[in-house]
């Protein structure tokens, strides 16, 4: 499932695993929060679930992941601000997107 990933990108990218902790999962509001956070960074940011990767700057893309409560996702970020991007997105997951 990772066969088409470019080696150069993989080498430069950071990855962190996160879990969907809020009860309602990644519905519209959490997706919007993720997009707002992600668009603040220059580099490419992807979210992955079960081998499927989507652009973290696209709401409809995020919603296709079906990020239900308990789902395990990976954040991939590339570019000069990759570390800050991963930290910002992971923080939203950890804070349950400011909901239950």
């Amino acid at each position: 499932m990772d066969s088409d990933r470019k080696p150069t990108k993989a080498a430069a990218a950071l990855t962190r695993e996160v879990t969907v902790l809020n009860r309602y999962g990644i519905h519209a509001r959490p997706a919007a929060l993720l997009v707002k956070a992600a668009t603040g960074f220059a580099g490419e940011i992807l979210l992955e679930k079960n081998g499927v990767q989507v652009n973290a700057k696209s709401i409809m893309g995020l919603l296709t992941l079906e990020g239900n409560h308990g789902a395990k996702l990976k954040i991939h970020a590339a570019g000069p601000d990759a570390a800050a991007a991963v930290a910002a997105l992971a923080d939203l997951f950890e804070r349950k997107f400011y909901e239950d």
Binding site: R23, Y24, G25, H27, G61, T64, L65, E66, N68, H69
Partner: peptide, 12 residues
């Protein structure tokens, strides 16, 4: 809560 997230994924 489940069906809403599933429907959103399907339609998205």
């Amino acid at each position: 809560t489940g069906p809403h997230i599933q429907f959103l994924a399907e339609i998205s």
